[in-house]
């Protein structure tokens, strides 16, 4: 049970809006957003999935990016709360994972085995379209949503949808499709960079991601730009290794 104070809420929304400057990095923005959503309701993990034009759900960003968790997010392209939220356009709230094996035979046991007790999913809505979902996992320590939390998390999800558009006034539906494909491809570049750094520094891919993220932050560079440089310019990879 959480009760979010109005002050805390205002602070988070201002912070999120502040990040939406002209030239922001989408994946980094979505990471901040999932991070804040997690701390807001004391969730174990929060992730954001985008639906591609062929109906697959792709992991875009999360409050945590360990392999087990990313698999849990990704698994939902076949079944699970995110797929339901995308299909129905309605949030899925407070589902007890211990009692959800019949509803999601593959997803629920794996989520429970990863230490989560409850799960929620909020549709990422853009006008009449649902383009993805925000996924919230609760543990025994927190993440059960009170009634008042639901519109708050949905509002954060709606902000994520706005960020995806990047261009403030979109005249044509085509631009959304272009943006979405661009965002999905950026995510692929980050995975490629994780692999390159893991190999060159002898790290796990999880640790490699922390290294890339830290390096981008220290230099105030965009995560996507750093990832791109790592996989296209051997010198950029060497510089990161030395740093």
């Amino acid at each position: 049970m959480t009760t979010v104070s109005p002050e805390r809420l205002a602070k988070i929304f201002v912070e999120v809006a502040d990040t939406l400057v002209d030239d922001f990095d989408l994946i980094e923005f979505l990471q901040t957003l999932t991070d804040r959503a997690a701390s807001l309701v004391g969730a174990g993990a929060v992730g954001l999935l985008l639906a591609d034009e062929r109906g697959k759900l792709e992991f875009m960003a999360g409050s945590d990016e360990n392999v087990t968790l990313v698999e849990l997010f990704q698994l939902q392209t076949d079944e699970g709360p995110c797929l339901e939220a995308v299909r129905t356009g309605r949030p899925v709230i407070n589902v007890d994972l211990g009692a959800a094996a019949a509803r999601w035979p593959r997803f629920a046991p794996r989520a429970a085995a990863a230490g989560f007790q409850s799960v929620h999913a909020f549709p990422l809505r853009l006008r009449s379209q649902v383009i993805g979902a925000l996924n919230v996992f609760g543990t025994s320590l927190g993440g059960h949503l009170a009634e008042a939390d639901v519109p708050v998390i949905q509002a954060l999800t709606d902000v994520a949808a706005i960020a995806l558009l990047q261009e403030r006034a979109i005249r044509r539906g085509e631009v959304l499709s272009e943006q979405l494909q661009g965002a999905l491809n950026s995510r692929v570049v980050i995975e490629q960079a994780k692999g390159a750094v893991a190999q060159s520094m002898g790290l796990t891919v999880d640790d490699a991601f922390a290294v890339i993220r830290g390096y981008a932050r220290r230099h105030s560079w965009k995560l996507t730009d750093v990832a791109h440089a790592i996989v296209t310019d051997p010198e950029a990879l060497a510089r990161l290794k030395e740093s």
Binding site: Q74, L75, E191, Q192, K194, G195, A196, Q199, V231
Partner: peptide, 25 residues
Amino acid sequence: NYADGYRAQLFQAQGMVMVQLGVSL
């Protein structure tokens, strides 16, 4: 196969092999 070997792993492997062989992505 999204469920058992999530696709991200293929791209991570691509980055690793790029470094192993010193070739393009």
